[in-house]
């Protein structure tokens, strides 16, 4: 994805082994929660995130990393496009599944990075 001028971006990917959606954190780890994601606010920091993602892809941790645009809501990132927003939730027709269900069960991103 092209890096834009007024940047608010996070890096996402799917884990190789189970395919689940993850976001790159400030600590260069991967978290299932977009709330934990490192937010790039400049072209340079976005490129740096992308570079770290490519290294993780080469190391066979994740598949297909890419940057997504986010807006900040109460200081937390929220994906701009509906497609990406749904990736942070799960199927809207099965709210008992996916991240939305885990979040409802209290699993959401208080730290929680797992790699």
């Amino acid at each position: 994805m092209a890096v834009k001028k007024d940047v608010r971006q996070v890096l996402t990917a799917n884990l190789l082994k189970d395919g689940l959606v993850v976001f790159m954190t400030d600590g260069a780890a991967w978290s299932p929660w977009i709330e934990d994601a490192a937010i790039a606010t400049s072209k340079e920091s976005a490129l740096e995130l992308e570079g770290r993602g490519n290294i993780a892809a080469k190391a066979n941790v994740v598949v297909g990393p890419y940057l997504i645009d986010v807006i900040e809501e109460n200081g937390r990132p929220r994906a701009n496009l509906i497609r990406e927003h749904l990736r942070t939730l799960g199927p809207t027709v099965r709210t008992d599944l996916g991240k939305q269900a885990e979040r409802a069960a209290g699993g959401s991103g208080q730290g929680g990075a797992f790699i």
Partner: peptide, 16 residues
Amino acid sequence: RPLRLMNGLYLQLHAY
């Protein structure tokens, strides 16, 4: 990718 696709395995929005 082509090998897994030949066996019906896709990577979708939330998972494989």
